[in-house]
Design a protein around this nucleic acid. Structure first.
Length: 619
DNA sequence: GACGGAATTA
DNA sequence: TAATTCCGTC
């Protein structure tokens, strides 16, 4: 197993190197020589990588390449002059010079321009206005509307970073309906779709503001570019940094298997966390991309299935600690300065409406800085990751990197998930506004504070009587000083830390496995188990556990509760100490002080346990 | 209005 | 899989 992991890691690294070299137009043989790998490996790695859409389909070696290079230079020159040229415009220009080139190829050349190898996934190039296209995703459509000035009366950026307000819900819904060929579309339905984004962490609601939502650009970036290697350059990008990523873009090879997603190094940081994450990943990776052609999704996505069950984040309590002050945009701006430069690489092509052919905006038009980073961000209520003047959401990897780096600061401020950064262990998380109580990213397990939380109640559970275990905790919560699974109310101030809490919950929710941990080997069977009546399996487990040393979690809580009540009655001042002790002892010794020996199977006890369970359920 | 479950659809 | 549709609840 160990060995296998190592090989995997090595191969990922190797693959990255191969890809990078290939991106730098190095030939297969040369790569093979440099990296001491067979040419066939190089070929297969590159082939695989192309299949994932992460490497631009670079022209092959040989004569054809030279021709392509010529085209490329031409296109590049053209795009240098006018980055906002659409591929069609480039095509037209080339045609006027007697060269025919498909827009697809121009797209590719555009990708290769200056960054060699970072190709945006196909979805990003979907023609933005292809009426009737059912492929477009709502968030994409929203972004589209947001960047068009003509819709600013309908929907616009407003308030916080990434926050937008739907000024005319009916109109937005209508537009969405038109786009999706759903004439029956209305805001109610549209908003339902938006609400589904809460679980995916793409969007969340700005509480108290009508029709106001907020993008989690972090999530969008990670969903669509989960393999941008954040760690390779590190630190702020110098002011002189080129507007587009140059040769050294760090784009990881997309994982072929879930185990590739998390390198062993990452996993080592918190075996519990990461192995758990990896397990989930192994259950299936989800693509968040509209046409399924693009990069895989990442851990967060795999986690979201649980979040989905659990309900939206904001209702989940956050970690304890004082609310963190919001970072000013200026602060971020200062830390990561960046020249205003044209953005030729936006996945959102210039709208034909926004930039009619032949009437191209000046290079430094307000529409140009269109990256979702803070660098171009000047505090203003109307500003957004995308410049209001009909600009673009940039998936330029360097911008993504800066954006993410800047956002590590704002993780605490903008509802961004610290979990997202687990994928990028090398990222330096600036902590300029740390309170005394540091917010530990769960990289260091020992410093990670767990808070037990019951799973949130679904609608059904809310309506139905509580389960035995939860009724125990809820009944215990009525008496003070009693150990309990604490459910803390979330305040708006705490909301910012919500994500971390979710992280904790994600792990602690592995209930089945947690129970396994507490279980001792089952006692030898004494008699054939009677058929378990439906709905009584749990009781049977509880009862059965009495016969062995198997103490299910729920029963442990019950015992803790009665024990603590007893202690409380005695007025024990060293209660907490005892709790810890008893907790420790509990795991070693058979509990039930004064009760019958654990090994003796008492039918009375069984019955009592069953009754208790039933009672709890009924209450 | 906002939320989210459930069933359904493409 | 990403909505769409409907609807009960807060």
């Amino acid at each position: 197993m160990e060995k296998r992991k190592k090989t995997k890691e090595l191969s990922v690294d190797l693959r990255n190197q191969i890809v990078r070299k290939h991106e730098q137009s190095q030939g297969y043989k040369s790569i093979s020589k440099d990296l001491n790998v067979p040419v066939s490996t190089v070929r297969s790695v590159i082939k695989k990588n192309k299949a994932h859409g992460t490497v631009a389909n670079l022209p092959r070696c040989g004569r054809k390449r030279k021709i392509d290079k010529r085209f490329q230079r031409k296109i590049v020159r053209m795009l240098d002059k006018e980055p906002r040229l659409t591929s069609k415009q480039v095509q037209a220009a080339l045609q006027s010079e007697g060269t025919t080139e498909s827009t697809h190829t121009i797209h590719q050349r555009r990708n290769e321009k200056g960054l060699y190898g970072f190709a945006f996934p196909d979805w990003a190039y979907k023609p933005e206005s292809s009426p009737g296209s059912r492929q477009i995703q709502l968030w994409h459509f929203i972004l589209e509307l947001l960047r068009k000035e003509e819709y600013h009366e309908v929907i616009a950026w407003q308030g916080d970073y990434g926050e937008f307000v739907i000024k005319d819900p009916d109109e937005v819904a209508r537009l969405w309906g038109v786009r999706k060929c759903k004439p029956q579309m209305n805001y109610d339905k549209l908003s339902r779709a938006l609400r589904y984004y809460y679980n995916k962490r793409i969007l969340h609601k700005t509480k108290g503001k009508r029709f106001t939502y907020k993008f989690n650009f972090n999530k969008l970036v990670l969903v669509n570019y989960p393999f941008i290697d954040m760690g390779m350059t590190g630190g702020p990008v110098p002011q002189s940094a080129p507007p587009v990523p140059s040769g050294g873009t760090h784009f990881r090879f997309p994982p072929c298997t879930p185990s590739d997603v998390l390198s062993p190094t990452e996993e080592l940081r918190s075996p519990t966390l990461f192995s758990s994450v990896a397990r989930r990943l192994a259950r299936g990776s989800v693509s968040d991309c509209s046409d399924g052609t693009s990069a895989n999704s990442e851990v967060e996505e795999s986690l979201s299935e649980e979040q989905h069950r659990r309900g939206p984040g904001p209702d989940i309590p956050a970690f304890r600690g004082p609310p963190l002050p919001r970072l000013s945009h200026e602060g971020i701006f200062r830390v990561y300065p960046r020249p205003r430069v044209p953005e030729p690489l936006s996945p959102f092509p210039v709208s034909p409406m926004g930039a009619p052919a032949g009437l191209l905006p000046p290079q430094l038009s307000p529409a140009l800085p269109m990256t979702p980073n803070h660098m171009n961000y000047t505090p203003s209520p109307t500003l957004s990751p995308m410049y209001p003047g009909g600009s673009h959401f940039s998936f330029n990897p360097e911008d993504m990197k800066r954006y993410l780096q800047a956002h590590t600061q704002s993780v605490y401020n903008y509802h961004l998930s610290p979990r997202a950064f687990l994928h990028y262990p090398s990222i330096v998380v600036p902590q300029p506004q740390r309170p005394e109580k540091p917010l530990h990213l769960p990289l260091d397990e020992s410093s990670f504070k767990f808070k037990l939380q019951p799973p949130p109640l679904g609608k059904k559970q809310r309506e139905r009587p509580l389960e035995p275990s939860s009724s125990t905790s809820s009944s215990s919560s009525s008496s003070s000083g009693v150990p309990q699974i604490k459910v803390e109310p979330i305040s708006d101030a705490e909301e910012d830390e919500e994500e971390l809490m979710v992280e904790v919950t994600d792990i602690s929710e592995e209930e089945e496995e947690d129970e396994e941990v507490f279980k001792a080997p089952t006692a030898p069977e004494q008699k054939a188990p009677p058929p378990i009546p439906p709905g009584k399996e749990e009781e049977m487990v509880n009862a059965g556990s009495e016969s062995g040393r198997c103490i299910p979690l729920k029963l442990r809580f019950k015992r803790r509760w009665s024990e603590d009540q007893r202690l409380e009655a005695e007025g024990g001042a060293e209660e907490s100490d005892k709790k810890v002790k008893s907790n420790q002892e509990e795991s070693k010794l058979p509990p039930q002080p004064g009760g019958p020996p654990c090994r003796r199977v008492s039918t009375d006890l069984q019955r009592a346990t069953e009754e208790l369970s039933l009672e709890s359920r009924d209450s």
